[in-house]
């Protein structure tokens, strides 16, 4: 995002809207720190500028800066997935897609959220740790996968290092007996990451909204706990298209 300096009246109203504090005063005008800005567009959508000085940067859709927008602006549709946002349908449509079936778990590592964002080298620390641990089952439909240059080492494309995004999600799907190994690997790399990440585990339920005990046992024994609130697919969906349509 940019603020046209010749138009800005320096009222500062836009500044609190920036999730990453990229807008500050310079010479009595508000200006966007291009290094820090995630291109999320929050300041523009707020329509708070009395003189309409806020604009999209002319370079916002140029690679690799465009990744900032795709992974930070919820209204941007990623060119690869055709889906708004930075993830997939994951557990939300699992009653229809059966992506995570009986005896399987999905793990989502959302790096950068809440509130902090990240330089992509932080997500590389996690992908490298996962690759070293032999964990390669990364969800193929997640737009993040396109950032990886070498799945065997977990290295990202070199031109991306230094780019910043509000968050990106590593999604993994494995058999339940691999969950312990994954959680242990994530715990090991957590202290190396110079940002935050949210960790999710999704699995099919047993009758009566009962979480499979073996999943809970692994989570607990690896030193993690789960929050009382969760995202629950209510099982009301059904498919009517051919799967490959």
């Amino acid at each position: 995002m940019i603020i046209r300096q010749e138009t800005c009246v320096g009222c500062g109203r836009c500044q609190p809207y920036c999730p990453t504090n990229a807008i500050h005063f310079q010479d009595l005008k508000s200006t966007v720190d291009q290094e820090v800005c995630y291109e999320c567009g929050c300041c523009l959508r707020a329509q708070i500028c009395p003189v309409e000085a806020i604009e999209e940067s002319p370079h916002v859709y140029e690679y690799p800066r465009a990744l900032r927008k795709y992974f930070s602006d919820p209204n941007a549709t990623h060119a690869l997935t055709g889906i708004q946002g930075r993830g997939t349908e994951e557990s939300k449509t699992n009653d229809v897609t059966h992506r995570v079936g009986p005896g399987e778990v999905g793990v989502a590592i959302e790096v950068g959220r809440p509130n902090i964002g990240m330089d992509l080298k932080n997500i590389q620390k996690i992908t490298r740790a996962l690759a070293r641990a032999g964990i390669h089952e990364i969800e193929p439909n997640n737009p993040f996968l396109d950032m990886i240059q070498d799945p065997l080492t977990g290295d990202l494309k070199p031109e991306l290092i230094g780019e910043r995004v509000l968050s990106a999600i590593i999604e993994i799907q494995v058999k339940r007996d691999r969950l312990r190994h994954i959680l242990r690997t994530i715990k090991g790399v957590a202290r190396e990451v110079d940002s935050v990440f949210c960790l999710d585990v999704y699995t099919m339920l047993e009758p009566g909204l009962t979480v499979p005990p073996e999943v809970l046992e692994v989570i607990e024994s690896e030193g993690f706990s789960w929050r009382p609130n969760a995202k629950i697919n209510m099982g009301l969906g059904r498919a009517w298209e051919r799967k490959n349509s």
Partner: peptide, 18 residues
């Protein structure tokens, strides 16, 4: 009869920056 649950295992990493 709910089908799938997504559990939050919380926030990790540099939580001191939150």
């Amino acid at each position: 009869n709910p089908h799938t649950i997504n559990l939050s295992l919380g926030i990790h990493g540099r939580t001191d920056r939150l």
